[in-house]
Design a binder for these strands. Structure first.
Lengths: 231, 231
DNA sequence: ATTGACTGCGAACGATCATTCGCATATTTG
DNA sequence: CAAATATGCGAATGATCGTTCGCAGTCAAT
């Protein structure tokens, strides 16, 4: 099917393309990138459906409408596909970190980042992939390091965030920022893993609880008791 | 080795046991139960090491010091082993629910149950199994129902706990107990999944944060601001 | 147009894995 | 003791899976 399209395409361009069959020099690299993307999208779909180990390369080939031989021109192994997806996925997540500076208060900034992340994961339906990546990271060294890298990024960003807020007198002094960050991250992962929307917990229901958690942990110096209450 | 013991045992009982080779009628069932247990322990070890899909039946056989043919006398399939382990594991978890009634305050009871659970999981080194079971529950119907059952038990227990506390005027009225329970459970799972002790977060470091969380969510009517502070 | 590199194909290969089967031994029953 | 049954064994089986390979078509440059 795909081959048919390509042959049809060259029909009307006999004069200037049949003689010089290609007027586009960077077309190869372009197409290559598109193919890689196609494979990653197909693989993601399969992995969400059946898990890293449950989905076969043939499944991915079928989903990408591609032969095994073709697929292996772009990725040397199944592991490489898994690692590329883990890497992509984790990189996307980190994009939400920048939103921590948003909002009038430190709590609002934190909440903006967290809620944006939660909403995005739910909307894209990639929740299961998190669990899969987590499980894979327990045994695959490359995936583990990928996870650790993004965790490190988060920890650094959050530590800077908390330190700045503390110095500005916005929050009470916190003695153990390391533990604070680890615990918050663990809880955040739990929120992502459990497909809360499937249990009837929508984003707007979730928000006050997360805000209460943020207030309890960060304890902003002002408006201590009016904020952070679950309505 | 085990066979050796048995033959030695029959030495001094020539008269009444050599003629009637077995004086123990319920020995079969006993031994059967022991074998089942042996398999489950070996399988758990393998699954923690390599994951449900990564561990082969031959691995389990080697670990249990048993041939495939023998193993299949006790479990009809690998899936059956996985399901039995998931079931066992989840049942163990539920045992900690009963401790919620402990302690002088509602917060103490809650904390007793949570900390006991966290400590137990860490001590037994079964953290990875949680992630594995979670991932498996996304695709294996039996495992999913096993998870949902124990979640349901937890929800029921916690709802009863919170309702009683609310009626007794121990905590502020909570409008949305369903959401409260779901969010707390998700966060708790996150704490279990992330192997916090591996990141230097010991139980005693974790405790004040969990307590702050409990106070923020449950908001006991008295001592509102003195408790629930992270030191 | 010819050459050489790139891409695509899909049958085939070798490895692995869950599961089975025929046989031997051990235990229980009659 | 003999028949019946339960248990153990481990090589064999059939299926699946990741990966490879030879071939054919396409693209880019001379």
């Amino acid at each position: 099917m795909a081959a048919m399209e390509l042959t049809l395409e060259s029909d009307d361009s006999l004069a200037d393309e049949a003689l010089k069959p290609s007027a586009a020099p960077g077309k190869r690299a372009e197409n290559r990138e598109a193919q890689v993307q196609r494979i990653l999208e197909a693989a993601t779909k399969c992995f969400v459906r059946s898990g890293f180990r449950g989905a076969s390369m043939h499944d991915i080939c079928r989903e990408a409408d591609m032969s095994p031989g073709a697929l292996y021109r772009y990725f040397p192994s199944k592991e490489a596909v898994i690692e590329a997806i883990s890497e992509n996925h984790r990189r996307e997540d980190m994009a939400f970190l920048s939103r921590m500076g948003e909002g009038p208060t430190i709590i609002d900034g934190f909440m903006a980042a967290v809620m944006a992340h939660v909403t995005h994961v739910h909307a894209s339906g990639m929740g299961p992939l998190f669990t899969e990546i987590k499980a894979e990271s327990l045994r695959n060294e490359t995936v583990r390091q990928c996870c650790m890298k993004s965790e490190g990024q988060f920890i650094d960003a959050f530590r800077a965030f908390a330190s700045a807020a503390k110095q500005a007198g916005l929050i009470d002094p916190i003695s153990d920022i390391n533990t604070l960050v680890s615990v918050m991250m663990a809880m955040g992962e739990g929120i992502i893993f459990s497909d809360l929307p499937e249990q009837g917990v929508t984003a707007d229901k979730l928000e006050p609880f997360l805000r209460a958690l943020a207030v309890a942990f960060l304890r902003p110096a002002e408006i201590k008791s009016s904020q952070g209450k679950v309505k």
